[in-house]
Design a binder for these strands. Structure first.
Lengths: 146, 146
DNA sequence: TTTATGTAGTTGCATAAACAACTATATGCC
DNA sequence: GGCATATAGTTGTTTATGCAACTACATAAA
């Protein structure tokens, strides 16, 4: 039973994710202005390592919803920036465990602050109740398609 | 007055747009399965030309929320695929008007059907009322940041 | 122990995005 | 007309994504 809730004029934004593009651009701009010199994608990897340091690349794939080549290259670039280190696992030599460097730890507080600030800019004029529902919908969409 | 509606554990999905990434991947997969051999980004340009054929690249920038270099290259690739043609404007020689070819017109019905189908897959189990609110929130986010 | 199969990660290639610098044309003002 | 400024589009560079093919290691079955 197709619900066809979308008129053509409304389909576009939802499909193309204009809102999340806008959020990503603003966050990148806020990072840049504050002198935080990393990309949003690099930040998304650091974000999960700040929650739990020493994840495998495979775990980072699942956490960040990215494929293996993407994580390989993000870790490459984060290593070049000296923000993470690859450490071969002793139990299983296929696995790289990824660890934060002290420099990366320094970025945590400021960048999380900037992320929160960016979300507040994004959600200006939106009520908490509306945000709750939007989050539920987006979570459900993700669960439906992942 | 910061609303700080996001606990840390919830901030990530919203910022990184996991839901719209999931939608884009599923739409791309549905295109591929159906033999529609274009990227989602190319489709997003065609989408606006189907609504109004003969837009300038600048108009396409605004409609698709992309910058000028992105549109230059998307139009390059769509031209290689023989789906659009650049036609120099006679009024203003700086402007390229972009026109659909007959081959592009053939893609319209099927691809729009696939887009609607993809949205129905995405929104399975979500009520119309919730979708309405989510759309409002995302529209407001876009307006706040664009 | 050998062989098959699965998993972790890497590499190559095509497409796309962000940003800055650039060319060409148009417009407004003196 | 001539100059300053703005607008439309292009090009170069870096970073990232998606997909397929690949290597290396692990595991389990014969």
């Amino acid at each position: 039973m197709p619900n066809n809730q979308f008129k053509k004029s409304e389909l576009y934004s939802f499909i193309t994710g204009k809102a999340s593009t806008a959020i990503a651009r603003r966050l990148q701009k806020n990072f840049k202005q504050a002198g935080v010199d990393i990309t949003i994608e690099q930040w998304s990897v650091l974000y999960h390592l700040w929650k739990e340091d020493g994840m495998s690349q495979q775990q980072l794939c699942e956490a960040t919803f990215r494929d293996k080549p993407s994580i390989t290259r993000l870790v490459d670039n984060l290593e070049k920036l000296k923000l993470v280190k690859r450490v071969a696992s002793k139990d299983d030599r296929r696995i790289n465990m990824i660890y934060l460097t002290p420099e990366a730890s320094k970025l945590q507080e400021q960048s999380m602050e900037l992320a929160n600030q960016t979300l507040n800019e994004a959600l200006e004029g939106v009520t908490n109740g509306q945000v709750e529902i939007a989050k539920e919908v987006l979570q459900r969409v993700y669960e439906n398609l992942k």
